[in-house]
Design a protein around this nucleic acid. Sequence first.
DNA 1: TGTAAGAGCAACCATTTGATTTCATACTAT
DNA 2: ATAGTATGAAATCAAATGGTTGCTCTTACA
Lengths: 110, 110
Amino acid sequence: MKTRRDIFQAIADPTRRAIITLIALQAMTPNAIAEHFDSSRQAVSKHLRILSECELISQKQEGREIYYQLEVNKMKEVDQWISQFRQIWENKFNQLDEVLATLKAQKNEQ
Amino acid sequence: MKTRRDIFQAIADPTRRAIITLIALQAMTPNAIAEHFDSSRQAVSKHLRILSECELISQKQEGREIYYQLEVNKMKEVDQWISQFRQIWENKFNQLDEVLATLKAQKNEQ
DNA sequence: TGTAAGAGCAACCATTTGATTTCATACTAT
DNA sequence: ATAGTATGAAATCAAATGGTTGCTCTTACA
């Protein structure tokens, strides 16, 4: 069992992304979460385990209920990976600005 | 074959993420890309196909060679999904600021 | 013109994944 | 104590995934 299980693999599944969004603002129990989906409670429970394993969510017991909440800071790891490309696409805009400036200058010289 | 194949699934694989980073600044041929990995050329080729299918990369033929380049704008879709959480973690800081401001005010009143 | 190189595609295989079913555990309330 | 609720865990299964092998097609070049 290689169990790669990193954040990118965790957010690859659409149901897990929906769960993440769902509990982003407010901790919820597995039952409450499952009610929002077609999946069974057990299926949701497995998703929660995967999200827990890569520390994207944490839990706090409350009697016999368990509230799951998003560890939003963990999401920064994805943001960090994306940021390298953000630099590129912002650069592209800069280059486009240069092109436009050049064209404008040429036009003025005519 | 359900072939879910969205961006999140595409970047879930570490080899594909490496390919994306590799060609981010400079278009490359499959052979050149494969040299950077342990995987075979065919394995890389399959990854390239997946990345192409969700339009994360594009290709331009050059003789018998095909250069693959990153469609960096497509990456914005991931950035967009992340941004909702960015708002949350920035909000957390704001709340902390409020707490600090309150504490400071209370201290001044003493 | 024939041979080699660059690349895609289909078939196949082992592993992983996501879901369901069934069971076990822990807490609550009567 | 006992029944019911909330949840986790193991077994099982179909489908998806990532990789390899072998084949074909096109282009370059001697």
